[in-house]
Design a protein around this nucleic acid. Structure first.
Lengths: 191, 191
DNA sequence: ACCTGAACACCGTTCAAGT
DNA sequence: ACCTGAACACCGTTCAAGT
């Protein structure tokens, strides 16, 4: 039967998961799916568009949390970020893929919409909530990328292990600092 | 006369500045320098190594600040980040290049060493200062990338301008939030 | 020491033509 | 509607051989 867009996305997710972004080429996908390269372009407009769908699929693993009370908003934000982290941490180069998707079609990434809602619910004015989300997202994706590089370097023979700010600890430290900074910047949300 | 490594780096900086990372290929550089591609590999081991030198050159524009007093450390940190931002903001894809360099050979980027010193000087324990630097750097590079994408999208005809967290304002907001969070997390440095 | 020429093993994208 | 075949215009890297 005919190839579907879903199959194409799934194949992309699986190659990414097993081999990383460097091996995720349209030609490789075509080989994997037993079609010619050109066939893929009937289902997606470009590789970038495919990667957006890959990112959406990865983040789709995160369950939608219920809206917290105003006092619980910071906790809910931290919890959501933790969920995002564990959804992405084991997928090589996932940070890069999500970054791309976020700039190409941010509305395709539902959990990032929830994050914004939670921030506003915590008492941060709408315009600044966008900035705050950027801050949190840059930290999340940066931490994930650093963690994955650390693992990659550790596998190479000539690895000098100068990977700091990699692990869970660094991630949580950053979240704590940002949330505290937000509480200072927006005192209304502090209690 | 013979090609030098310096000339190669300069050519790379200039192609990056004018056309961006997508156009910065070894073959293009060879064309620009009137040599065969293979010649470049006598001067650098790989494209990645060249990009590290490009990043170092870009950050080399930032003058070394003198060590601040302990109370002035947060201000000095903010000032240094501002300098880094203006050194990179006009260079397309500079954030990506710096990110690569930072993971490949962090010691090649002197200003990032100063940043770490300032953080420790501000009273942050050495291990956490590494985390804090990551946090600041992710925000810096994230802001620069967002700003450049916003400009890139604005030039395209079918641009939907959903670029928030792009400008100077977003950058400074983030710095403020992080520095405040750090002050809360490390009360010794608060006064 | 420094470079050429040529190869190797790839890319993303397009598109007439087939079924 | 969906795919093939083939082309277009590229990549990074290596290396024998030349000067």
């Amino acid at each position: 039967m005919a190839l579907t867009r879903e199959q194409l996305i799934d194949a992309a997710v699986s190659v990414l998961s097993e081999f990383g972004l460097a091996d995720l080429s349209m030609r490789r996908l075509a080989r994997e799916l037993d079609v010619q390269v050109g066939a893929l372009y009937w289902h997606v407009k470009s590789k970038q568009e495919l990667l957006v769908d890959v990112a959406a699929k990865l983040l789709g693993k995160v369950p939608q949390p219920s809206m917290p009370t105003r006092q619980m908003a910071p906790l809910a934000i931290a919890a959501l970020l933790d969920q995002l982290r564990s959804a992405l941490l084991t997928i090589p180069d996932s940070a890069e893929v999500v970054q791309l998707a976020q700039t190409m079609r941010p509305e395709a990434l539902a959990p990032l919409g929830w994050l914004l809602e939670f921030l506003e619910h915590a008492g941060i004015p709408a315009d600044q909530a966008l900035y705050a989300r950027h801050l949190l997202l840059n930290h999340l994706l940066g931490s994930i990328a650093a963690h994955q590089e650390a693992r990659a370097l550790a596998e190479e023979p000539d690895a000098v292990a100068h990977a700091a700010g990699s692990g869970q600890e660094a991630f949580e430290y950053g979240i704590r600092v940002i949330l505290q900074g937000l509480a200072v910047e927006h005192p209304a949300s502090a209690e």
